[in-house]
Design a protein around this nucleic acid. Structure first.
Ligand SMILES: [Mn+2]
Ligand SMILES: [Mn+2]
Ligand SMILES: [Mn+2]
Ligand SMILES: [Mn+2]
Lengths: 218, 218
DNA sequence: TTAAAAAGTTAGATAAACCTAACAAATATA
DNA sequence: TATATTTGTTAGGTTTATCTAACTTTTTAA
């Protein structure tokens, strides 16, 4: 049996390693920050996860998921994103509301429910934030994408996903009239602080570098 | 905050008292049997529930839900039955499969989700077992019904709900070709052990008194 | 190359939900 | 009514997931 807490640790490790480019391992403190617990707590849990062969790590070393650990993590991510899609498509939730409830729903144990849910939703490939939904075999479609900040002046691109999933950020994006698949034209960029002027739906906004870094486009 | 465990205790008390006729209070051992824990465990929890004003009880006395405790319990029962309906109607679950998963789903905390789910399902009034679904105000439609055992010979009645919700019982009922709203004709009854001969879909079966007591009809 | 900073670990504590074993009160029955 | 049975309580213990405070190892940088 895998506890809810263990599932959350494995999912966090997946996000911090497998899912991020340029990084294949994580540290104790890093995980602690991510999960909002103290390093000592992570350390205890790591011993248990190692015992269960879900992670490989040695004292003072770095942490990576084993094949077994990764497959559990992917299943949780799959459930999380399917539930987010369900909440968004079927239950009239907005894209900033889905995450919190999906955090609970992802721990529901029922193989059949996940399969039926996926079927009911028509085998969606991305969730409401543009993130890929792993299939029943745990395979994840790789999405080629750049951050909005990397787009050159004058170019027009399409929003395909968001990096930050916080309620504040998502509501901000929505308030600017932006959503997945919306067209964004880059008007200008400030050398000084990296802020950019963009045009969306014939409206112009100035956004920070931090903001632009959190939007993925093609 | 009400923990998942506390919710289960309140729901159990609701089933054992408010929802059952002829009984308005419960005892420690009774609750322990129902929840499959030891009496000592119930005793500890009772102190906490009393502290939180969810139950009223004195040492060596009987337990009843307070208004506050009952309203939490009804909300859990509401969620349980809405989820069972969802699993049955939308996710292609059979009536013997829904309960186990609904036991998990009933603890999901999201007012909006419950309301949207109810709306999506078309404000159902009964769950897949024929039990009434409380509305958003916590009101429960009283269903007038008798057990099949009380029906007189020769009479025809309609199955409206099942008492026992165990997988074995529900599968047995289903295997006999019976389901909610099916017509049952009482052919004969044995004085000796109370077993009955019944006719369903032009087929005759002999069923035990225990079996007949677990079917509610009108 | 060594001292300071950062990262990671350990020991010991707490709270929730459970247990066993022993005990006490209430109820049933001889 | 006295005793046996049932019902309920208490004390003390376990496990899981968390914490703080002190300590150790590794890394960075003067
Ligand atoms: Mn999410
Ligand atoms: Mn998402
Ligand atoms: Mn049920
Ligand atoms: Mn039911």
């Amino acid at each position: 049996m895998v506890s809810q807490t263990e599932e959350n640790y494995l999912k966090a490790l997946f996000h911090l390693t497998c899912e991020s480019e340029h990084k294949i391992e994580a540290g104790t403190n890093e995980l602690a920050v991510y999960l909002e617990v103290k390093p000592a707590t992570v350390n205890d849990m790591l011993k248990k996860l190692k015992e269960k062969k879900f992670v490989s790590y040695e004292k003072y070393g770095k942490i990576t998921l084993t094949k077994k650990g990764k497959s559990i993590a992917v299943e949780i991510v799959r459930k999380h994103r399917l539930w987010e899609t369900f909440l968004y498509e079927t239950m009239n939730f907005t894209w900033d509301e889905v995450h919190e409830v999906a955090e609970q729903l992802e721990h529901i144990k029922s193989q059949k429910l996940v399969e039926q849910l996926e079927k009911f939703l028509g085998f969606p490939e991305i969730d409401p934030h543009g993130d890929p939904i792993p299939n029943a075999e745990g395979e994840i479609k790789k999405i080629v994408r750049k951050s909005l900040f990397e787009i050159s002046i004058g170019a027009v691109c399409k929003l395909v996903s968001v990096k930050d999933g916080s309620v504040a950020f998502l509501q901000y994006v929505g308030k600017l009239g932006m959503g997945l698949n919306c067209k964004i034209k880059v008007i200008s960029r400030q050398e000084f602080d990296g802020s950019m002027e963009i045009e969306v739906n014939s409206q112009r906004f100035t956004v920070s570098q931090k903001f632009a870094n959190n939007l993925f486009v093609v």
